[in-house]
């Protein structure tokens, strides 16, 4: 465990908790894409099936359980508890356009043609694009609440920190995982435009709104 990895995990956890608290405290999920949250729940579920087969560490198990639990709690708040505040008219991204091609890709490009390995690969690929419905929603409405921007920033930062962790691990341990790296790069690149807006606008105290 190096500092980049730890900071990445903390950033990821922070993102998840920011979103949960935002919805819980405002009693509203306005501006949040339920579809991105369903995709993240699917990502965690398919990746962490190894909870049932392999014990890695107390840290690893705890974080996985927290990620899965929070992600299902978020989906539950959007589609049940605070359903009335869910902005479904603006959440129109078609999930099948991501899930089906990614399922096919994970069957074709993986480390090992075994069920758990294919599901792990699927989750890595899906995670890289799972934020698209949310970014699509922000671009459709032309703005995001400041707290939603903080969520997106923490979530983007997490994978950027993981990229540095992988560079570290390459030099420290002498190997790399091409599937994780390529997907992680794609994921981080998707956030770049948002990072720019976040730094130039949100950090200067302005609300994130896109030019018309």
């Amino acid at each position: 465990m190096n500092l980049f990895r730890l900071a990445g995990d903390v950033s990821h956890l922070l993102a998840i908790i920011i979103l949960l608290l935002k919805i819980w405290r405002t009693r509203s999920c306005a501006g949040i894409s339920g579809k991105s949250q369903i995709l993240f729940a699917l990502v965690f579920t398919t990746r962490y099936l190894d909870l049932l087969t392999t014990f890695i560490s107390f840290y690893n198990t705890t974080m996985k359980v927290i990620y899965i639990g929070c992600s299902y709690a978020t989906v539950w708040m959007i589609y049940a508890k605070f359903k009335a505040t869910y902005d479904s008219n603006h959440d129109t991204f078609r999930m099948e356009f991501l899930v089906i091609p990614i399922a096919a890709l994970s069957l074709l490009v993986n480390h090992d043609f075994a069920p758990l390995e294919i599901l792990w690969t699927f989750s890595i690929y899906l995670e890289s694009v799972a934020i698209l419905p949310q970014l699509f929603m922000v671009s459709k409405t032309g703005e995001a609440e400041t707290i939603t921007s903080h969520y997106l920033f923490a979530l983007g930062l997490y994978r950027a920190l993981y990229l540095m962790n992988w560079i570290w691990r390459f030099f420290a341990e002498g190997f790399f995982d091409l599937i994780a790296i390529v997907a992680g790069l794609v994921q981080t690149i998707l956030y770049c435009d948002f990072f720019y807006l976040y730094i130039t606008k949100v950090l200067k105290g302005k609300k994130l709104s896109l030019p018309a």
């Binding site: 990620y67 390995e117 792990w120 190997f175």
Partner: peptide, 10 residues
């Protein structure tokens, strides 16, 4: 194996 090692990540 190498493949398994990176499964320590989240």
């Amino acid at each position: 194996s190498m493949v398994v090692m990176w499964k320590d990540e989240l």
